[in-house]
């Protein structure tokens, strides 16, 4: 699993496509916010006090905690 990249590995401004979501409890909720496999995700910035990141998914903004973001797996 360690070879897989998650959204957390993106640097500020970088983008990638989502491959999958690997945590059952979070998946439904993330999907309703537009975090879907094949969607384009961009890392906008980290929150001022850390702990959360600002993502752009198909042009809409979503904030997630690092804990949640690490389950958003990216296409290689």
């Amino acid at each position: 699993m360690s070879s897989e990249k998650s959204v957390l590995d993106l640097k500020k401004g970088e983008w990638a496509f989502i491959k999958s979501l690997d945590e059952l409890d979070l998946t439904c909720r993330l999907m309703t916010m537009g975090v879907l496999p094949k969607a384009k995700v961009q890392m906008v910035r980290k929150s001022p006090f850390g702990g959360a990141i600002y993502l752009k998914i198909n042009e809409s903004g979503v904030a997630v905690r690092n804990e949640e973001a690490k389950h958003i797996i990216l296409e290689q």
């Binding site: 979070l26 909720r29 959360a52 600002y54 903004g61 904030a63 997630v64």
Partner: peptide, 11 residues
């Protein structure tokens, strides 16, 4: 239960 953030940042 677990605590979540996951919040929309609308335009």
């Amino acid at each position: 239960s677990r605590s979540h953030l996951m919040i929309e940042l609308p335009q």
